[in-house]
Amino acid sequence: MLKSLTQHRLSGLALLAIIILLVPAFLNNPFQYDMATLVLIYATTVVGLNLLVGYAGQISLGHAGFFGMGAYFSAVMTSRFDWSPVPTLILGAALVGLVAYIVGRPILRLKGYYLGMATLAMGFIIYITLNNEGWLTGGPDGMPVPGLSIFGWELSTFNTYSFLGMEISGSLAWYWLMGVMLILGVWIAQNLIDSPIGRALRSVHGSEVAASVVGVDTPKFKNLVFVVSAIYASLMGSLYAHFQGFITPESAGFMESIIFVTMVVLGGMGSTLGVIFGAALLTLLPQLLADFHDYEMMMFGLILMLTMIFMPKGLLPTTQAFIRKKLHKKAEDKA
């Protein structure tokens, strides 16, 4: 049982790695790399959020707040105080984790929609602060962010680099970097899920009362996951800021939070590969619909609505169940 579980986990990771390796073969201009890199950034963010929403069963409608805090910490520190990007984003993540820990304790006692409300309020307060403190954040018009420099190299999508004797473009380098981050993110998340903590977590999703009866310290675990998912968001927010080169408070806004949750739910709550799929879909859909101009908004809403109505468990789990059913039927037919 344990062995099959580990094998399953590794095969999932391997599948993901293969997909990430193969995607560049289908990309034929830097813009598409841009989009692919954004998909990876959002995917890693929602892999973290999925721990909270999918496994611990807690609604968060303010997660972009953490994303925005990470982004702005990196932006402000590297541009106004000349801090080095990599240590800055790590320190930023630690600080955001601390904030999540402090906020999480009272907030996570709330249940269901009330938790949704409290996280929404928290996200809004972060957004409003970023908007209002223009002397530091540039206000609603945002602020430019220096490029990501690693060991003195500035990673820009307009440069090319030689790496192990190969010429690679900056776009490709960013793509690989974020690909590695996603695999790392998934690996850490899966380890957490399969650990004793993870089992406790899933019991929280099942029934909190039952979990505490059998001796699981539910508040502690919920808070831990809240902190972990906030750290994911903060790190990705920082990288997003460096990648985009510009950041506005909207990246911490309510709509962004909703988009994050939608990525999780659309892809399939509790399915790591599923939420990655959800992130890809929601990042690319606006680009695909852009040519419909006036009809874009209507189509986006319709697609969102129909997918959730007909696949309430999310795209990937529903598809998996469908395939499994087909295979099962085939096997039956043969017998």
């Binding site: 908004m297 129909l306 109505i309």
Partner: peptide, 26 residues
């Protein structure tokens, strides 16, 4: 979507809101 999770229902209503807004705008 009767059997759906509360979060799923939230997303459905958000989708509906965007859809209605999209039509109104047209």
């Amino acid at each position: 979507a009767k059997q759906a999770d509360p979060v799923t229902l939230i997303i459905i209503t958000i989708g509906a809101a965007i859809f209605i807004r999209g039509i109104a705008q047209l």
